[in-house]
Simulated scan of single mutants.
Amino acid sequence: MTAGLELVGVHAAHGKAEVLRGIDLTVPKGELLVLLGPSGAGKSTLLRVIAGLHPVSAGAVRIDGRDVTALSPGQRDVSMVFQAFALFPHLSVADNIGFGLQVRGMGKREVRRRTEVAAAMVGCEKVLDRRPEQLSGGERQRVALARALVREPALFLLDEPLSNLDAELRVRTRTELRALHDRVGATMVHVTHDQTEALAIGDRVAVLRDGRIEQVGTPDEIWRRPATAFVAGFVGSPAMNFLPGDGPWRVPGAVAGQQVGVRPESLRLDTSGDGLAATVTGAEVIGEDAWVRLRIEGHALVARVPATTRPEIGARVVARADAADLHVFDADGSRVG
């Protein structure tokens, strides 16, 4: 498959501090790739490098097979949607969407046509005559997306575009964003620190840590087979539990210095039978689920169970998990097996 974006050995710095440390990444044409990671991982810097807004100290950036490493942002054929909507308050929605085409000298009739098409794609065609101050947060986000779409670029870059929306609107808008990508079929790179958002919309997810890529895979691969202990612990709510390799959870082949991980959703609690003896130290009810806090041989774990089955604090229980749900990581954090 043709690559829409290629990063080869990309390094970048802020002053003397190295932020990106050898990024190699290929995004097939038409894919929606999500860059996921904690604050300071280098996600936004990487997006700015792709856009040409931040210089590389080494490596190459290619878009649709063209080396753009030395090109200015305007020469790269990319459109970017920022966390802040950055709309011109004195312009109408239509003029905001078509502004980039106007300054490039495109004829008024073609600008209007493409503006109306882009607005219809994102569902803001009924507010073209309004000003940004007359719009809701969700409508402003749609306008920002339409402004990116109208240029029909080779690559779309989205820098945490949903983070300023309230929780309900964020969920609805991410669904619309995924549907928009499927309609347009464009290559998109989307930055977020929200793991739920990443797993919900990405064709693939690239997990970053300290300027390096820890893993690239489908949402299912990231969830079910994390490549490192960091990915396993970062993706999931509550986070994955870890026990020493030679600790209470006996896994064939696991040894001292290694870690055994199990997701809270994979733990089952009972009052008797085979498993690990545990004491309930707390419980948080979150909707239909309960996060039950356990103590097992001095180690703290969390089990995510139906709220109606949560045991009382202080109760003695048995914790079980299937062998297929146990993950073993080496001392350096890499996956074993």
Rank of each mutant, 00 (worst) to 15 (best):
G98H: 01
R66T: 15
D220Q: 13
V235W: 01
V68T: 14
D210R: 08
M1W: 00
G337P: 09
G100V: 07
V150A: 09
G202E: 04
G217I: 03
V10K: 00
Q258K: 04
V318C: 08
V34W: 10
L177K: 11
E214H: 07
A239E: 10
V78L: 06
F242N: 05
E110L: 08
L91C: 11
E116S: 01
L71C: 15
I201F: 07
Q195K: 08
I50V: 15
K29Y: 05
T192N: 14
A290I: 07
M106I: 15
R225E: 02
F156T: 08
P38T: 07
L158K: 03
F85M: 00
A331M: 02
T218C: 06
G282E: 13
G100W: 00
P161K: 11
R172N: 11
G98I: 03
G282K: 09
L180G: 09
G314Y: 07
Q215M: 03
V143R: 07
P153W: 01
L91M: 15
Q75S: 07
A198C: 03
G298F: 06
D270V: 05
E284P: 11
G253F: 14
A41T: 09
A229S: 15
V8S: 13
V27K: 10
P219L: 05
R147I: 00
S237C: 12
E139S: 05
R183T: 10
A319M: 02
L157T: 03
V19T: 11
L301N: 00
E116D: 11
F234M: 11
L128G: 04
I201D: 14
Q195I: 02
V56G: 09
E168I: 09
L128Y: 01
I63H: 09
L294A: 12
F329H: 01
L199I: 05
R112G: 05
S92D: 00
F230S: 01
T196A: 15
D203N: 14
K16I: 07
V318I: 15
I201H: 10
T175E: 15
G211R: 09
H193F: 13
K108T: 12
A198L: 00
S57D: 15
V78G: 04
L169D: 07
V78F: 08
S72E: 15
V171M: 13
M240Y: 02
P28D: 03
R304D: 08
L35P: 06
V122L: 09
F230T: 04
D203V: 01
L243F: 01
R320E: 08
V191Q: 13
P73K: 03
L162S: 11
V336G: 10
P226C: 09
A84C: 04
D270G: 15
V231E: 14
V317C: 13
R104D: 10
K126N: 11
P28C: 07
I313M: 09
R142K: 08
A186R: 00
L276Y: 12
E312V: 10
F99Q: 08
E160W: 04
R335V: 14
P226A: 10
L32C: 10
G137D: 10
Q83E: 13
F230N: 06
P153L: 05
G217S: 05
P38Y: 11
A118R: 02
E214N: 07
W249N: 06
Q258M: 15
V231Q: 12
G261P: 12
K29W: 00
D67F: 13
P244L: 01
S72A: 15
